[in-house]
Design a protein around this nucleic acid. Structure first.
Lengths: 329, 329
DNA sequence: CTTTTCGAGTAAAACGAATTACTAATTCGA
DNA sequence: TCGAATTAGTAATTCGTTTTACTCGAAAAG
């Protein structure tokens, strides 16, 4: 900056004023032009560290994730966060901990040393977490996860509404016997979606038939077997709500194996909206989307609106899971 | 740091020496203990910006990607880069440009202002790129892409070897009539894999039959039609090499539709190793993996080994695409 | 004519560490 | 017993900016 000043024949202060467009300082247009010319001639570029040191603003947000980065399920959390950060002229510092506690700890230290202006702690799938206590040394928001006592702000998908939406979409298509192939490992999604399924049935005056609700591990292969069993009953369901798209893939196989057509004979609806599966299946799969992008975006926006020095109130933000209509129902 | 020094009854210099474990300075164990005690009592944490300003090391690498972050295809580039960066005590600054030129430009400025110690410019799929010229103001390496004149170092998958490996795997299983459903939009992968396919046939003394090589858009639906046509010939192939896993998904549908079995009647091999598809299909899909993780890792390692101030020689590093054996051949 | 007020800029003090060049006290070696 | 070496530490400078509190001359106001 001193070099630029010398070349432009002004003081370093003036260069700073020109670069930052400081309105309170009166600098003539002529001088501004000379300064900019000098800047370009020298190829000078401000040093963000010096600037941050002085202004005490790092313009940086930290994102610590267990596996989000790896998993196609939730990469969009990062994208949403990154685009929102970008809009606020901030950069995103990303660390994937692969679930290792020590990495998590160190990553947190690193980010705090870099004076991040906000922290996001994200999980690959919606579940309870126990983050390190230092997390609260910067404004923090949990993404796709929550702490047991709900003492930290969190952004999570509204699983109940998602289950309701999926079921309702089938009911509206005239289905009365709707099977639900659920996940078997206990997790919020399992309970929430089941609850939504029940609420939708109740809302439309349909009976809840326990025989139509099955559980298995959430992969195509296991769901194939369950769907087959379900479809070989005399009073087979006319629609299947699958806990996720991978299971829907298995259900497709079962339906085709029995020579039935989708959606004419059996409708299928999934959950997750994994483009790779949902859009590639034939017919394309109607599904409910987990609002990953939206969660990332909202998280950053919450952090950005925060007055300096304060932390976010421990509100649990439930984000809706929208219906993605394709051709399977 | 001054506060810590005061509490410990030493100078700020001493605190710095203790914190950084400076061996050239002789500080008694007793004093060290007192300093650490003061640090913990005050909850002091070094300020990375001040440190970087003074040391002129940002401990940061930048990763600019077009869509990598979004796409399940290549997220692993980031993971590989991040883990390698982590191993070198560096952090990764990630920006996804969504292919927009202006975002790319600004992101680059931001990163240069933050004095990144290295830059990676990554693409979602292997193709030619024209990055902004400022890219070379820091050591840079292209990942999964290259420039026309090969004047920048790049890390790219060895498509030819990949095509060869896939074809060879089928030949070794005894297949003699091997179809290849290729991508139709011109790109390095298309030409490379075809070349590998031809080389493998030649190496094993098999004739190249143009009738067995078809092209279509790389999605399940179009590949379904092509596979069907291929399998309805009198002299149908006993194996199909698909340009990618999505197309293999379509081939599976076609084979099952015709009542044929995989791999007994027709073997299928894919490319990409998209866990979501390859592992969920039945039978699980044997495929060739694009070394995304490895590319990210190698890129960072190249940057890390670089002496300060120098830039990498414009070597094009071809990384092998390993065979992932499952049950479809 | 003074006094104010502008306009156009400048000097100097932070920001929070790392680092260099010292000092003062002790120990060692012959 | 005296100079050299070692031990234990400190003062002051520096990194590259932002920002506050000036200055200095000219025009406007009274």
């Amino acid at each position: 900056m001193y070099d630029v000043a010398r070349l432009a024949g002004v003081s370093q202060t003036t260069v700073s004023f020109v670069v930052n467009n400081v309105t309170s300082a009166a600098i003539s247009q002529e001088t501004r032009d000379r300064v900019w010319a000098a800047i370009h001639a020298l190829g000078w570029r401000p040093n963000a560290m010096a600037r941050s040191l002085r202004t005490r603003h790092s313009q940086t947000l930290g994102l610590i994730s267990d596996e989000v980065v790896t998993s196609p399920y939730a990469v969009r959390i990062i994208l949403g966060a990154q685009e929102a950060a970008w809009a606020g002229r901030q950069m995103l510092l990303v660390v994937n901990t692969s679930g290792q506690r020590d990495i998590e700890q160190t990553a947190l230290q690193f980010m705090l040393e870099r004076r991040v202006e906000g922290l996001m702690y994200a999980a690959m799938y919606h579940h309870e977490v126990t983050p390190p206590p230092e997390l609260t040394q910067a404004p923090v928001v949990l993404v796709n996860c929550f702490v047991a006592d709900r003492s930290l702000p969190a952004i999570i998908p509204d699983e109940v509404q998602g289950g309701y939406t999926a079921t309702e979409a089938l009911i509206r298509r005239g289905h009365r016997r709707i099977a639900f192939i659920n996940e078997i490992i206990p997790m919020p999604a399992l309970f929430g979606r089941l609850e939504g399924y029940r609420q939708a049935l109740a809302a439309y005056g349909l009976p809840f038939d326990p025989a139509l609700v099955r559980s298995c591990h959430s992969n195509a292969h296991d769901a194939f077997a369950v769907a087959l069993a379900l479809l070989e009953r005399d009073d087979r369901p006319t629609a299947i709500f699958c806990f996720n798209d991978k299971m829907a893939m298995g259900a497709y196989d079962a339906i085709k194996r029995l020579g039935l057509r989708i959606p004419q004979d059996v409708a299928v609806i999934g959950f997750d909206n994994l483009e790779l599966i949902a859009a590639q299946l034939y017919p394309p799969l109607t599904t409910v989307e987990l609002p990953h992008y939206e969660m990332g975006r909202r998280a950053v926006e919450l952090l950005q609106t925060l007055p300096a020095g304060e932390s976010l109130p421990p509100i649990q933000h439930y984000l809706p899971c929208p219906l993605i209509e394709r051709e399977s129902i």
